[in-house]
Amino acid sequence: MSALGLVFLMVGVGSLIGGLVAMGRTKSFLAQAREARAEVVAVQQRTGSNRQKSYYPVFRYRTEQGATKDVVSSVGSNPPRYKEGDSLAILYDPAKPDSVRIHSFFNVWAGALILGAIGVIFLIVAGITMATSG
């Protein structure tokens, strides 16, 4: 077994496990989540370590209990995807109303899918590397 094949194997298994954990957390979140309409009330600009700017929408929504919450999205973009006044569907956890996700397939499942896909790709490369390093 080559060292390179072993590295690909370890990264693949780790990513696949990470994807499965993320999927479990997402399913748990969805089991508790409530949907609400939110309005974008602001857009925060942040500069990353690479000096790239990203824009994070600030959502205002009302919980089932009638409380108004303002929450900054954990997902930013450049250019900004949302502007003040935009309305969109969100999912929130009633036990943790600051835990919010935009209600779209990508925003709900992206973490699990990306980690899982990386894991599968690395496992395929590991298999090829080990098979050809005979």
Rank of each mutant, 00 (worst) to 15 (best):
T47Q: 08
S87R: 15
V7C: 02
P97Y: 06
Y55C: 05
P79R: 09
V120F: 13
T63I: 03
V41F: 04
Y56F: 15
K53S: 10
P80W: 00
K53I: 09
Y56I: 04
G127R: 04
S87G: 06
A38G: 07
A36G: 07
G19S: 09
T47H: 01
E39F: 00
N78G: 09
G19C: 07
K69H: 12
Q52A: 15
F29W: 13
Y55S: 06
S133T: 09
E39D: 09
E64V: 10
V11W: 03
Q44M: 05
A110M: 14
T63H: 01
S15F: 12
V72K: 08
L88W: 01
G14N: 01
G76A: 06
D93G: 13
G127C: 05
T47V: 14
P57C: 12
V7R: 01
S54W: 05
M23F: 11
G5A: 11
F122H: 03
A42P: 13
L91N: 06
F29M: 11
T68D: 11
D70C: 00
A38T: 02
G85I: 04
L9M: 15
L16S: 14
M23W: 13
S54A: 13
V7N: 02
S49E: 12
A33M: 08
A112E: 08
R46K: 15
V72G: 00
R60Q: 15
A95I: 04
A33G: 07
R81I: 12
P57N: 10
A117E: 06
D86N: 07
S77Q: 07
L123C: 08
S73G: 03
V108M: 01
V40K: 09
R34W: 06
G127W: 03
S104Q: 14
M23P: 00
G5F: 08
G5L: 09
K83F: 00
M10W: 11
S28A: 15
A89R: 15
L115D: 06
S74D: 13
N78M: 07
A110D: 11
Q65M: 03
L91G: 10
V58K: 02
G5N: 10
A117F: 15
Q44H: 12
S87K: 15
L20W: 03
A126N: 12
A95N: 14
S49T: 10
T129A: 13
Q32F: 01
A22L: 13
T63W: 02
L113R: 01
A131Q: 12
F106H: 03
M10I: 15
T129D: 12
V100Q: 07
G134A: 10
Y61F: 15
Q44S: 11
A42C: 12
I121V: 15
T26R: 00
R62F: 00
A38V: 05
R25A: 13
G111D: 04
Q52N: 15
G119S: 08
G116S: 11
M130G: 03
T68M: 13
V71T: 14
M10D: 03
G19V: 11
V75N: 05
G111C: 04
P80V: 01
V11R: 01
M1T: 10
E39T: 13
G19T: 06
Q44I: 15
G5W: 11
A33S: 14
V43M: 04
V108N: 00
A126D: 10
P80F: 01
N50C: 08
S133F: 07
L4P: 00
A95C: 08
G76V: 09
N50L: 14
A22P: 03
